[in-house]
Design a binder for these strands. Sequence first.
DNA 1: GAGCACTGC
Length: 923
Amino acid sequence: MEKKTLDFPEEMNPPVVVQESGENLDLCKHKEEEDEDMFLSVEKISRLPVSIKFNIPKKIATKRRRKSEEEEKKAKLSSGDKVLRSDEILRLRKVSRQKYMKNREKKKVDEFRDQIEDEVLLNDGVKMTEKEVTEFRYKKKLYELLKKTEDDDVEGYRIPDAYDQEGCIDQKKRFAVAKERYCERRSGRGVTEQEAWEDHQAQKARVSFGAKDKKGVVDGFEFVFDDLKGLVEEYSEAESGKHRGCYSKTVGEKAREERELLPIHGYREELLKLIEENQVLVIVGETGSGKTTQIPQYLQEAGYTKRGKIGCTQPRRVAAMSVASRVAQEVGVKLGHEVGYSIRFEDCTSEKTVVKYMTDGMLLRELLTEPKLDSYSVIIIDEAHERTLSTDILFALVKDVAKVRPDLRLIISSATLEAKKFSEYFDSARIYLIPGRRYPVEKLFRKWPEPDYLETVIRTVVQIHQTEPIGDILVFLTGQEEIETVETNLKRRMMDLGTKGSEIIICPIYSNLPTELQAKVFEPARKGSRKVVLATNIAETSLTIDGIKYVIDPGYCKINSYNPRTGMESLLVTPISKASAEQRAGRSGRTGPGKCFRLYNVKDLEPTTIPEIQRANLASVVLTLKSLGIQDVFNFDFMDPPPANALLKALELLYALGALDENGEITKVGERMVEFPVDPMLSKMIVGSEKYKCSKEIITIAAMLSVGNSIFYRPKNKQVLADTARMNFYVGTENVGDHIALLRVYNDWKERNYSTEWCYDNYIQSKSMKRARDIRDQLLGLLNKIGIELTSNPNDLDAIKKAILAGFFPHSAKLQKNGSYRRVKEPQTVYVHPNSGLFGVSPSKWLVYHELVLTTKEYMRHTTEMKPEWLIEIAPHYYELKDIEDTRPKKKQRRSERASTSKVDTNKKTRTSKVDTNKKAKR
DNA sequence: GAGCACTGC
């Protein structure tokens, strides 16, 4: 009580500022100078679009200061603030009249600047008009004149910062002040600020019961964010131990000591108690709380490992590896002994392993052999909010397992936005909040979407470069094409600007970029220059770049969605979700306070992205479920059920492939197929290769196809050379298709001893080839496991093509008169993809293709010529003679064909619905 | 003559 009145009079508490999105940006409890700055800057955030800002000195603002209070209220309302009660305002004034006036001043300055900006905005997107240029000059002049009279030494134009009345406060200084305060407190009172803070936080972290206490959860969570202030530096030092110079202690010792500095440390006992008492616990642990590394250790220390392993899933391989290595260090054991990880192609565990990190897909695979997870005592599903296909399936499966195993503990770790949903899903499981730790990120945004965001991106980069303190810039773009466009335009712009100012180094990064070119992103920029990273979504979660201080986020990304009706995939440029926006902004606050320039308004965004399970091809998912003995996939306990027609399509396909029988139960073939971690059509192709004595070739092709479309590298300036190199794999007497070409690429590479140089010479990505080799090795092992003999038939291309058709017979297409193709079983026109070796050569009449993609047209990717009679030979249950009949009289036959097709369709439907009914009956 | 974000088993 005393503390409160003495140090922080209540009337001095800044008002709670709510951004338009509803987030509480600043909830400082202590009245300090920077609080007011923060208040101002937050207020600015809610009103200022990002563009050239003019720093108008106080003078103008002073003139406008004496406006009525009503107007002030209005202004506050319009900026999204909660209006202060008028008595509070009066008291506030009493206490700090002068300061308040200064704030007013600033506010009015901002308003004035807004007016100017609105005018600038009118000309936004278009190139500089005469009017704009004149205005620009005029304002510059005005500014300079005013500057003379004001004793202000700020030069030029800049984006508003968290400034005080004198201008821009250096963020570092700001934190130095905060730290000073922290030191003072420590000496002045018995309680250190850290202790006080921990006390405070301990009250904040609260347990809530499912959705019943939603408000509490949200409030509590948002509360814990930002009052770290003075502690931020303390903590970050602890966290980034590797950056510290002196190593008098061993790395392990240091790591162990640092454990105690993590925010989660204070909640250890409470957390353990909760886990003991509750079978399922949803944990909201913010970035930097230490949950991923600490919880498994706490559980181990509490003796959980006596009953079984502690498994912790991660959505990404690198995460599983690096976290495991960190924990092994902290515990002081060798990685792979007591602490290990398990990812595809790499099992770094032993019999001793009690804490096991793994990818979510890996746990799903383990469930196939160990349905009750008997060897585990605790399962932690980390980053559950990312909602990968695997985690979504895992949710339902572990929920089921938990019912039959009361001793099993389940911890679901998620970000705020979805915590409530997870809790509801797990039968109102408890939610526990652990505060995180991170640097503050100032968010500036546009009220309206940008008409030409690439241009705005370039302008913002230039502006940051000219007006903001040193620090690298990260720009989020949707794809390679955009990255290349921005790169060339930005270079041009920088040239136009001449030599004044320091240089910028542009680093593009996207997953298809060869590794050696990707490395450039991680090199620190030369002294005096600034790095500008142009990245796709890869920089959102997958890789972290040090030194980023500014993030420019246009708010879009490409999302893959699968259309079950047409069986076609397409990549769509889509607005990101609020969750993504937060994640992107956070990328600027990793090593120090950051700034994020949003070229959109957060309030226009959806809260979360559509989960993958609702937009993916489900063939593989359904086969996995069937193999786990889940009969009724329609009533499976999905957190967000996928569309019914997507499930139906998957069932139909699996039935056609022979993986399911007419009752919808998994067959022998299906059991074999499920062993292979590839798409069901590919696994059927592998299983089918046994018959054609070419399993060796087929697993190579399957591996190459699994890698995707990143085998051939096609740099912009060497396209012709790259294309010529690619066509070398197609030469031969026969019409070599894309599948055979891929086989040749692999075999040639193997012949050259897997040479990287050979890859360079042939415009092939060695990274992809190495991946293909890994996959092939794995497939080889599995072939052995299920007892398919490794046979080779390299010269019988027909045998290989037939084996391909064994899996891909539904993907057949026939040439039409106009040169396009038509799918045999679906009334759909498709085209050979321009990247195919069959593109532009004398067309083959019948083709089998690997996949359909919708870009500018409906394209077949990876196609190979085939003979129509093979369709009947291989898939007599699927094709009739009519389907492949060559010549026919025009009208009559067509009608009959249509009739027969629809008949087949009806048959299929009845079959499927029969499958369904049976399942329901069984249930 | 088009163009492919990112993961995972």
